[in-house]
Design a protein around this nucleic acid. Structure first.
Lengths: 193, 193
DNA sequence: CTAGGGTGTTACCGGTCTGTAACTTTCAGA
DNA sequence: TCTGAAAGTTACAGACCGGTAACACCCTAG
């Protein structure tokens, strides 16, 4: 029955997908639940039947976007099976693509900026997801045979994070335009040790 | 709560100071003008006599914080007159101090995250101020006798920006903890070529 | 002393926000 | 065909938002 278009998927999925998109574009505090449900072709009551609050919806959105990010890493493994160094370079290229095609940065980082209450339930999730991302990059660096894998991974992480922020402040022609060169020479210098 | 009210200055100055502090702590959309004026020991009408809108207040706050940042650079020059390399290292130490003592990142970057409308009046100001920051760091690198000063400055910028974001997502014990090490070895490698 | 500008106070406007209640409609499966 | 759960609809509550009007007050310059 539901073999057709994703457009006519179940309301919960539509809400989740639409919310991710709208939170990403307009920010969490910049979009209300009414706007989300309308864009998703449903209504507020249905949203609150599937999510107990907006905060809960935010958390589910963050988990969903993180899952999409994890899927990209799996693609790297599929494209370069066993070749961790090639996967690392694929990651660099992927990041460059994101910087060029999207000007709204990382959803998790943006959420951390917007949700300033230290005890906000989403903050814990953000930390967990970001730490998982870091662990995966560290593993990739280590499995690529790089000494000081943690330091390289952390440096690349900061460059990445900084680039995504820089795109939002000065655009993609700013410092982030040099990301590939920075990352590649960094990887080269770590490999040379 | 602990919103210090500079009691004996003019209302406009108190509002500006208080707004900077509250925007920094709670975010721009997380603070209403009523809360600002109350914390500043005044009232909403007085705010609107000095600032034509909240957006205008936001812009003035961004300019003020940028001016404070510029003053720090002047301190470096005063502490290490003519020694541009020492000033660069002082900058690295200063950044590390900020990362350790403040968990709310850069006001300009945070504002860019929160104010998603592409035509928001503050966005132009943010871009100008960030470009001025970059220019100053480039000049410092160049005057320190470093070849490829632009590339070093941009790399340091991204590391800095990324570190300030990382502190917000995973805390000061995350990747940003290695900032000094990253920056110092970067500077060394650029000087060595 | 007095005039007047800066400031404080109160009330209000129209809009938006999250979240809920009560009811009706739709539709798949038995 | 009947049934029951999921989904849609309308209305509303209560709070907060940015911004304005009208008026009372205070304090200093003249």
């Amino acid at each position: 029955m539901t073999d057709g278009v994703a457009e006519r998927s179940r309301p919960r999925d539509r809400i989740l997908e639409t919310a991710q998109d709208m939170f990403h574009k307009h920010g969490i505090k910049g979009v209300g639940v009414d706007a989300i449900t309308e864009a998703a072709g449903t209504n507020k009551m249905t949203l609150y039947r599937h999510f107990e609050s907006k905060d809960e919806l935010i958390i589910e959105c963050l988990r969903a976007t993180a899952a999409k990010g994890a899927a990209v890493w799996d693609e790297f493994e599929a494209e370069h099976p066993g070749d961790k160094l090639a996967q690392l370079h694929a990651w660099v290229r992927k990041v460059a693509d994101m910087l060029a095609s999207d000007s709204r940065g990382c959803d998790m980082a943006n959420a951390a900026v917007e949700l300033t209450e230290t005890d906000h339930p989403a903050r814990r999730v953000i930390k967990e997801l970001k730490e998982a991302q870091r662990d995966r990059l560290v593993s990739l660096c280590r499995d690529a045979g790089i000494g000081q894998a943690e330091l390289l991974a952390d440096t690349l992480s900061l460059l990445f994070e900084g680039a995504r922020v820089s795109v939002q402040t000065v655009g993609s022609e700013g410092p982030s335009a040099q990301f590939v060169r920075m990352a590649e020479s960094l990887i080269a210098s770590f490999r040379a040790r």
